[in-house]
Each structure stands twice: as C-alpha cells, then as structure tokens.
C-alpha cells in the first residue's frame, strides 16, 4: 500500500481540568487512504471528537496541549505547520468539516448565502487564473450545482434565507454542501446525524456516501453507532478512552472482531432476536486511567498481565490491528 493520504501517528492530547491533567488521547494512530471512508466509533468521551479537532488544528486553546505524535497529511506534519498556513491552505480547503449540530454551526443572523459565499471567498476551488467577474460566476455556479447535488430545492432562493427557515435535515444538507464546495481531499464528519431525526439520518448518510464516492473524497466519520459505520464505511476504527482498540476494513471487522470492547459494542446493538447486552462499568477515568490496558476494568477477559503492561498494537490479519494481549481468541465474550 502506498503512503496513506492522512496518517495520525501516536498522537497524545492532554486537557488541563480542575481534576488535573486528563490524557484525552493517548498514542492514537490511524490512517486514511485517498477516497476512503473511515468510521471512528466509540462511546461519548472516548476522544473521537478530540481527534477530529486535533486533525483540524482547532483544539480549545489554553486548556489543551498536543503532547506527542504527528498528523501527517500529504507528506507534511500538520502539527508543525504554521498556524496561518494551516488556516489558509488546509482548513476549509483541503480538509473540511461537517459539524455535529447544524443548528449551532450556522450563524442565526446571516443568510445561508452570506455564510456560504464567505466560505467561497477564501476557499473556492476556482482555477488560479480566474478573477473578478469570472471568478464570481464560477463560485456562484459551483454553489448552485453543489446545492442541487445535496437536494436543496431551488438553491438560488435558499441562499436568501436565514438558517431558522430551514429544517434540521436541510441545514445538514447545506453543511454537507459547504464541506464539498472547496473540493477537499478529506472531510471530517463529526457525528453528522446525531442532532437529526431518526427518519432523516439514513437519507443524510446515503447522501454523504454518494457524494464522497462521486467526488472521490475521503471521509473520517465519527459515530457511536457501529451499525451506521457498517453501512457507511470502508474501514472501522474503534476507540476507547483515548486509544484505538481495533482497526480493520469493514468486512474483516464485522466478520472476525478481535477486541473484547468490540464484542461489547456489537452486543449492545439492539437486534430482532438477540438480547441486548450492555458493557458493564463506566468509561475509564482519563485523569487517572487504569494501569496497563485502559479497558481492563470493564473487560470480561482481563488477566493479570493486562494490569501490568500496556497491551501492544498487533496486526492479527492483513490490515487488521488490535490493541490486546488476546488477539488469537475470537469467541464472543459473555
């Protein structure tokens, strides 16, 4: 496999809180290839949103520090890149964001068109030679075309409306449009359906998948729902307490899951006949994480060595890595 477009290597992020330093990310690694859709799955608080913000370089200032690792995008470490260049050339242009809550992400006092055109002013994919009126026409055409692609009825009219005049589903379509407008290489979709009605969620996911396939854009899709990841993603990465626990392509992941935490997640999906099992205990306290494996306090198969040493990340099959001592063991934990 050639070098991936994005590779997150051993990234650690600390937050300063009242309870002391919290290691929100602890040596996370993952890779995204061109055009690949990667699902980042985990409970709330597992660090998936923090990872998304780390890649975008928009961690909350003052309280957070990246204490280690690299985020290599197209050969360059984004963590070293000067802030101005990152904001101008990468964010919103080569890497864009679909936020969790479209109601919050639009400024309520400005028309959708104003906000979209402000994005295009600095992030338009217009060829360098275009300027003035030609550039304006290009931008306008591109906006209309992408709004049509995300099924916004009468785009020209929609641009004149204020955010509160749209439904949540439509707002999220607009957010998706904005993520695609700059013609990026990578889109970070941070739980893009959580704030939406269940009936809308499937539509939005299908739209995202179709758009990404058509434009050949890679997507990092964070979710707490394995079923969604199964439908949407090429690869699935399961995170727990700031670490990736298992990382495999979707087929291999669902055919032969290896990590006890993954079994837990799979068991907690409500099915027709199967009884829903929950994972016992609560998310590890990140201010004072358990020694050794971070999951061992909730793991049905924890052994003595799990408390003594940190389990290695091992490749148990081609492209299938797992952070556990028990990689050979495949039976479903009870």
């Amino acid at each position: 496999m050639s070098a991936p477009m994005l590779s997150v290597q051993q990234v650690s992020v600390d937050f300063a809180t009242e309870d002391g330093t919290v290691h929100v990310l602890d040596g996370v690694s993952l890779a995204v290839g061109r055009g690949e859709i990667v699902g980042l799955v985990g409970e709330s608080g597992c660090g998936k949103s923090t990872l998304a913000r780390t890649i975008l370089g928009v961690l909350p200032p003052h309280i957070s520090t990246v204490s280690g690792g690299r985020v290599v995008f197209d050969g360059e470490n984004l963590l070293d890149m000067p802030h101005r260049r990152l904001a101008r050339d990468v964010r919103g242009r080569r890497i864009t964001l679909i936020p969790q809550d479209p109601y919050q992400a639009f400024n309520p006092l400005f028309t959708v068109g104003t906000q979209i055109m402000d994005l295009m002013r600095t992030k338009s994919p217009a060829p360098g030679g275009l300027s003035g009126r030609a550039r304006k026409r290009f931008d306008r055409d591109r906006v209309i075309q992408v709004l049509e692609a995300v099924n916004i009825p009468s785009p020209a009219e929609a641009l004149k409306k204020l955010p509160h005049e749209f439904s949540g589903g439509q707002l999220q379509r607009l957010m998706i449009a904005m993520a695609f407008l700059p013609n990026p290489e990578l889109i970070i979709a941070d739980e893009p359906t959580t704030a939406l009605d269940v009936t809308i969620q499937a539509q939005i996911l299908r739209l995202l998948r179709n758009m990404a396939d058509r434009e050949g854009v890679a997507v990092i899709f964070t979710t707490h729902d394995l079923a969604t990841a199964y439908q949407l993603c090429d690869r699935v990465v399961v995170m727990y307490a700031g670490q990736e626990m298992e990382d495999a392509d979707t087929d291999s992941f669902f055919a032969s899951p290896r990590h006890p935490y993954t079994y837990g997640l799979l068991g907690s999906i409500p099915g027709k006949n199967a009884e829903v099992r929950e994972i016992p205990g609560e998310m590890a306290n990140l201010a004072d994480p358990p020694s050794g494996c971070r999951f061992r306090t909730r793991c049905a198969r924890a052994e003595v060595r799990c408390a003594e040493a940190r389990p290695p990340v091992t490749e148990c099959a081609a492209g299938h890595v797992v952070r556990c001592f028990n990689t050979a063991n495949e039976q479903v934990a009870t």
Binding site: V58, V90, A105, N107, D118, T122
Partner: peptide, 11 residues
C-alpha cells in the same frame, strides 16, 4: 458553535 465551525473551516 458557529465560531468553532468557522474556525474549523479556516474563515
């Protein structure tokens, strides 16, 4: 939220 979004989009 919109300031966070605009920053993430490099406005």
């Amino acid at each position: 939220g919109f300031v966070m979004y605009e920053r993430a989009m490099g406005f």
